[in-house]
Design a protein around this nucleic acid. Sequence first.
DNA 1: GCACATGAGGAGAGCGCTCTCCGAGTCTTT
DNA 2: AAAGACTCGGAGAGCGCTCTCCTCATGTGC
Lengths: 350, 350
Amino acid sequence: MCYKGRMQRDRLPTLEDVARVAGVSRATVSRVVNGIRNVDPQLHEVVWDAVGKTGYVPNRMARSLVTRRTGTVALVVSDSESHDDDPFMSRFFADPYFGRVVGGLMSVLRQSGVQLALQIVGSDDGRKRLVGDLRNGQADGVIVLSLPAVDALPGMLTEGGVPAVMIGRPAEPVPINYVDLANESGATLAAEHLLGRGCQRVAMISGPADVPASHDRISGFRRAMAKHGHGWVPIVAGNFTQESGEDAMRTLLSQTSDLDGVFVANDVMAAGALLALRDAGRRVPEDVAVVGFDDSSAAVTAQPALTTVRHPLEDMAAEAARLLLARIEDAEMRVSSVIYEPTLVLRKSA
Amino acid sequence: MCYKGRMQRDRLPTLEDVARVAGVSRATVSRVVNGIRNVDPQLHEVVWDAVGKTGYVPNRMARSLVTRRTGTVALVVSDSESHDDDPFMSRFFADPYFGRVVGGLMSVLRQSGVQLALQIVGSDDGRKRLVGDLRNGQADGVIVLSLPAVDALPGMLTEGGVPAVMIGRPAEPVPINYVDLANESGATLAAEHLLGRGCQRVAMISGPADVPASHDRISGFRRAMAKHGHGWVPIVAGNFTQESGEDAMRTLLSQTSDLDGVFVANDVMAAGALLALRDAGRRVPEDVAVVGFDDSSAAVTAQPALTTVRHPLEDMAAEAARLLLARIEDAEMRVSSVIYEPTLVLRKSA
DNA sequence: GCACATGAGGAGAGCGCTCTCCGAGTCTTT
DNA sequence: AAAGACTCGGAGAGCGCTCTCCTCATGTGC
């Protein structure tokens, strides 16, 4: 009756089935499907025909089991703060940062047919399990998003021999590939622009001090200001949310009434600062100049539009993906990092 | 001569190894590890000891191969517009929409230890391959993000028997699970609010008409306006980006000079509209009242803060994840959908 | 004491694929 | 023309796991 047709109920065609239809062996079909050398072009065609006829799709699981390759890269986000019902995580995903990274990553991974799997690690136990799964071939490699504070993960990853690339340098020196922004240069750019336009009383709204990127922006800003004779700069820390930026600005305003310039460590906080400034009746940039950081969509939406330090996050993420793919291909690849130089984008706020 | 030694170096412990250490059979270790009935509590302990001693981690690939379960759910995003070097995609990922969905999804999936894999489908060929992979067990199920325009994917998915849940209803009636917002109600809310505050000349900035959500917002708005005696409403379409909102607003302004109210189909475009309005010297809300849609972060950042229709996207995504998980567990589950009711969030712009 | 039900653990057959042998056929080489 | 070199395709051994038998020991009723 039905030769190839309704064989077993919903059993999908396997190599075996294709082989039978094509009248060759499993091995040959495998060779053809994987485009391997040494196959008679005639057979080649017969096999592809059979593939079409049967509707064969290779089973990735089976293939992975033997090749030890999954065609998947994991994106690891560390959630060291809250545990259940996590306001931190939802905040994080809603932030343009996450989306931009995913966009950059996918632009490269897509073309290689590699899929991206999201992983959140919360506890130390989770970290351990993650590395275990990874070594087991759950994914071929991993992109690690800049972790808050010191984290054991980068070390565990290199130790476990898992191909990994971080976006944002690790808090502690670890021999791991990473892609980062020259945060210090960015902060310097901001400082010099503020000073250059004549600001005399400049303050900063920073991110959490234990995040490396945030730390570097602080130290870069401090150093640049010091170099120009401003030995002391008031700094209030936020946590990268708009609300925290608003609060920080209020604090700053109450401390230093004659402020005329602020550098804010990211645009979202800067948008908040703008709100606080407006409430306080300060005009931007006439009374207070504001420089943001990231050049995210929030910078354009803000009123006035933010002068900001451009963070080419998509490009960086894309580069991270390329680096990871290369490392996966070549296990001997030496550890390398790419540092991007930020640029200042001039808009209305400073 | 290390015949085997070298290989053994990076061979991870398998069930077999654990079994040898524990002095039992593979089957028993498997039973213990998977917490299955009928194991002598004493052996139980011995086995766990051996697991600890060897550092055994089950190989997911092997397990999946036999169980036909992967512990992975795919998030499918359709990219029917541009092909290479895609501005559409990067825009999409940077939009808060994407992040909010991911956040909502992960909040549920995490707890079940299910991972999320991102998939972009671009072409028809891609769609076909996706369904093939899915049927092959690449993922246990799939969350489909509201697709632009009519798309064959939902149909292919149900036909292929792939557990799937859409976020946003399909453009054409297809027996598929979905979670959606009562977009028409939302638009009605906006219309009535605008009318309620006395607006006489009201227009709308819509999204692309072929996106179901967008379509529903248009028809809902039209109907509500008509019901209150405004048979005709000027509508200009944007594409959900800030820039397009700005352009649309300018167009509207040039067409209808005495506008006093606008309903914008998402907050990001509304932010753009605000910019155009400011440029045109119209005060918001005094001269023109603006109501947005989504209640995304852009609504708070905007100046003035947007009165907007709240779209509980995180909750909806979480519900979609729950629905999918349930469907995966129970293949007989009947097709069901959940519709969320939007609410109006009052801020400054209207 | 025997037949029987009961339950614990082992043996082993795959899941669908890749890849290393090998054998058979074809083409050089001396 | 014989012997090697090369090509192409098949057989079959796994990859690490689950799960269905099956065996064997123990408990139960008469």
